[in-house]
Amino acid sequence: MAEAEYSGPRDSKGKPRRHLPSPGRPDEKRAFRPRRPANAAPSKGNLERKDGEERIAKLLARAGVASRREVERMIADGRVERDGVPITTPATMLKTLHGISVDGNLVKQAEPTKLFLFHKPNGCLTAERDFSGRKTIYDFLPADLPRLMPIGRLDLNTEGLLLMTNDGEFKRQMELPSTGVERTYRARTFGDVTQEQLEDLFNGIEIDGIKYGRIHANLERRTGSNQWIEITLTEGKNREVRRVLEHLGLKVSRLIRTSYGAFTLGEMAPADISEVRKFDLVMFRKTLDTQLAKKG
Results as ranks from 00 to 15, higher is better:
Lys135Met: 01
Pro150Leu: 00
Gln195Ala: 14
Asp192Ala: 14
Glu159Ile: 01
Ser132Thr: 00
Leu162Ala: 13
Thr158Gln: 06
Lys171Gly: 08
Phe190Thr: 09
Gly133Ala: 05
Lys135Phe: 00
Pro177Lys: 08
Tyr185Phe: 11
Asp200Thr: 13
Phe202Glu: 15
Phe202Tyr: 15
Phe140Glu: 15
Arg147Tyr: 14
Pro142Glu: 10
Arg183Gln: 15
Gly160Asp: 09
Gly160Gln: 11
Leu154Ile: 05
Ile207Ser: 00
Arg186Glu: 14
Gln173Lys: 14
Glu182Val: 14
Asp200Leu: 15
Thr136Leu: 00
Ser178Thr: 12
Met174Asn: 10
Ile205Glu: 04
Glu159His: 11
Thr189Asp: 03
Asp200Glu: 15
Ile151Asp: 08
Asn203Phe: 15
Met149Gln: 13
Ile151Pro: 11
Phe202Gln: 15
Thr165Gln: 09
Phe190His: 12
Ala143Phe: 06
Pro177Gly: 07
Leu156Phe: 06
Glu182Thr: 13
Leu145Trp: 07
Asn166Tyr: 04
Gln173Val: 12
Arg186Val: 13
Ala187Asn: 04
Lys171Val: 06
Tyr138Ser: 02
Leu162Met: 13
Gly160Tyr: 12
Arg186Lys: 11
Glu199Gln: 15
Leu176Glu: 08
Glu182Gln: 13
Pro177Ile: 09
Leu163Val: 01
Asp155Met: 04
Leu198His: 07
Asp155Tyr: 00
Gln197Ala: 06
Leu141Val: 02
Thr184Gly: 02
Asp192Val: 10
Gly191His: 08
Phe202Pro: 02
Thr194Pro: 01
Glu196Phe: 06
Leu163Glu: 03
Lys171Arg: 08
Ile151Ala: 12
Phe131Lys: 00
Pro146Leu: 04
Thr184Cys: 11
Glu169Gln: 11
Thr179Ile: 10
Glu169Arg: 01
Asp192Gln: 15
Leu162Asn: 11
Asp139Ala: 14
Gln195Val: 03
Ser132Asp: 00
Asp167Ala: 04
Arg188Gly: 01
Ile207Glu: 00
Arg134His: 01
Ser132Pro: 01
Glu196Tyr: 09
Leu162Lys: 12
Val193Gln: 06
Leu162Asp: 09
Leu161Trp: 13
Met149Thr: 10
Met149Ser: 14
Arg188Thr: 07
Val181Trp: 02
Leu176Ala: 12
Gly160Cys: 12
Lys171Leu: 12
Leu162Cys: 10
Phe190Trp: 01
Leu176Tyr: 06
Leu156Lys: 04
Gly168Phe: 02
Ile151Asn: 08
Thr165Arg: 09
